Computed example of a mutant assay.
Amino acid sequence: MSSEVTAKPTESELEILQILWEKGNCTVRDVHDILTRNKEAGYTTTLKLMQIMHEKGLVKRDTSSKTHIYSALASQQKTQQHLVSRLIDNAFNGSAARMVMQALGNHKSSKDEIEAIKKYLNDLDHN
């Protein structure tokens, strides 16, 4: 299997990927327990989603023990880049500036986040 994962995760699959990116290797039970902290979800639904994600190449599954262990195959950075590009194209008519201004206008950013954004923009300006 190539290291370039091209499947586009659904919203539910993205929630699972977020858990795997943060926690690393997890069982279905591990993922399900984390998911149900914030929303109602059935165990069999989580299992089925993770099986589908395996078929799509978003996760890999280690079946060497009784309990299957899943880990993300989809790169967090590449997935985020793809989603942001799609959002810019579809919702902001290709304008990254409009998306950034909308995001900053709708979300309270911390002082540290604002400083990081300023530094990033300054670095872009000087390259």
Rank of each mutant, 00 (worst) to 15 (best):
I88S: 01
S71R: 05
M53L: 05
A96R: 13
A96T: 15
E22M: 05
I52H: 00
S2C: 02
T44L: 06
E55R: 02
K66C: 03
V5A: 12
G24A: 08
T46F: 05
R98D: 15
A116Q: 08
S85G: 15
L17G: 01
A97K: 15
Q102H: 09
E40D: 14
A74E: 06
T46Q: 04
A91S: 14
E4T: 06
L58M: 06
D123Q: 08
A116C: 07
M101D: 12
N93T: 13
L83I: 11
G94Q: 13
N106H: 11
Y70R: 02
V28N: 06
D123W: 04
Q18L: 08
A41K: 03
V5S: 05
M1N: 03
A7N: 14
M101R: 15
L35S: 05
S85D: 03
H32S: 00
T63Y: 08
E15W: 10
A97C: 10
N25S: 13
R98F: 15
S12L: 07
T45H: 09
N38S: 14
R98Y: 14
R37C: 10
T6W: 03
G94M: 15
M101N: 14
K56C: 00
N90F: 08
L121H: 07
G24R: 10
Q51R: 10
L58Q: 05
D123G: 01
H54M: 07
L104C: 01
N122F: 09
H107M: 08
L104E: 00
L121E: 06
Y120W: 10
S65V: 00
D125S: 14
G94C: 06
L73A: 00
D30C: 06
N127R: 12
L17K: 05
S64W: 06
S65L: 03
E40K: 13
S75R: 07
F92E: 07
A96D: 11
T63E: 11
N90A: 13
G57I: 09
E13D: 01
E11L: 01
Q77H: 07
I34G: 01
T45M: 02
Y43E: 11
K60T: 04
K56V: 03
T67S: 04
A91G: 07
V59E: 04
S85V: 02
C26G: 11
I16Q: 06
N93D: 15
L87S: 02
K8D: 13
D112R: 13
K108M: 04
L49P: 04
V5G: 14
